[in-house]
Computed example of a mutant assay.
Amino acid sequence: MLPFYPKRISIWLVILSVTIITAITCELEDSSIQCPDPSTSGNDVDGLLFVSYESVMDVVCGMAYNLEELNNHPEAPEVVQYAAAETDGYYTLIMVDPDAPSRTNPTLRYILHWLITNLKGSDLQTGQHNTGDVIAPYHGPAPPLGSGPHRYYLLLFQQDGPLTDITPPSSTSNFDWIEFAKSYDLGMPVAFNMFTTENIL
Score class of each variant (00 low, 15 high):
Leu13His: 10
Leu13Pro: 05
Leu16Phe: 09
Leu16Asp: 09
Ile20Arg: 07
Ile20Ser: 10
Thr22Met: 09
Thr22Asp: 15
Ile24Met: 06
Ile24Glu: 10
Ile24Leu: 06
Thr25Cys: 12
Glu27Met: 14
Glu29Ile: 10
Glu29Val: 08
Ser32Asn: 09
Cys35Arg: 04
Asp37Trp: 02
Pro38Gln: 06
Ser39Asp: 13
Thr40Lys: 12
Thr40Pro: 11
Ser41Trp: 04
Gly42Ile: 01
Gly42Lys: 00
Asn43Glu: 12
Asp44Gly: 05
Val45Trp: 02
Asp46Val: 11
Asp46His: 15
Asp46Lys: 11
Ser52Met: 15
Tyr53Ser: 07
Glu54Gln: 13
Ser55Phe: 06
Ser55Tyr: 02
Val59Pro: 11
Val60Gly: 15
Cys61Tyr: 01
Cys61Asn: 07
Gly62Ala: 09
Met63Leu: 14
Tyr65His: 03
Tyr65Met: 02
Tyr65Ile: 02
Asn66Met: 12
Asn66Gln: 14
Asn66Ala: 10
Leu67Met: 04
Leu67Lys: 03
Leu67Ile: 04
Glu68Leu: 10
Glu69Thr: 12
Glu69His: 09
Asn71Ala: 02
Asn72Phe: 14
Pro74Asn: 05
Pro74Trp: 06
Glu75Ala: 14
Ala76Arg: 13
Ala76Tyr: 10
Glu78Thr: 15
Glu78Asp: 14
Val80Ala: 01
Gln81Asp: 10
Tyr82Phe: 02
Ala83Cys: 03
Ala85His: 08
Ala85Leu: 07
Glu86Ser: 13
Glu86Arg: 13
Thr87Cys: 12
Asp88Arg: 08
Tyr91Glu: 03
Tyr91Cys: 04
Tyr91Met: 02
Thr92Cys: 10
Leu93Lys: 06
Ile94Tyr: 10
Met95Asn: 09
Met95Cys: 14
Val96Cys: 02
Asp97Gln: 05
Asp99Pro: 01
Asp99Val: 01
Ala100Val: 04
Pro101Trp: 00
Pro101Phe: 01
Ser102Trp: 11
Arg103Cys: 11
Pro106Leu: 08
Thr107Gln: 13
Thr107Ala: 14
Leu108Glu: 01
Tyr110Thr: 11
Ile111Trp: 07
Ile111Gly: 08
Leu112Ser: 07
His113Lys: 00
His113Trp: 00
Leu115Tyr: 09
Thr117Val: 05
Thr117Gly: 03
Leu119Ser: 03
Leu119His: 03
Gly121Met: 10
Gly121Val: 05
Ser122Leu: 10
Gln125Leu: 05
Gln125Phe: 03
Thr126Glu: 15
Thr126His: 09
Gly127Tyr: 02
Gln128Glu: 13
Gln128Thr: 13
Gln128Asn: 13
Asp133Val: 06
Val134His: 05
Val134Thr: 04
Ala136Asn: 12
Ala136Trp: 11
Ala136Lys: 09
Pro137Asn: 00
Tyr138Cys: 10
His139Gly: 08
His139Gln: 12
Gly140Leu: 09
Gly140Asn: 07
Pro141Thr: 02
Ala142His: 14
Ala142Thr: 15
Pro144Gly: 01
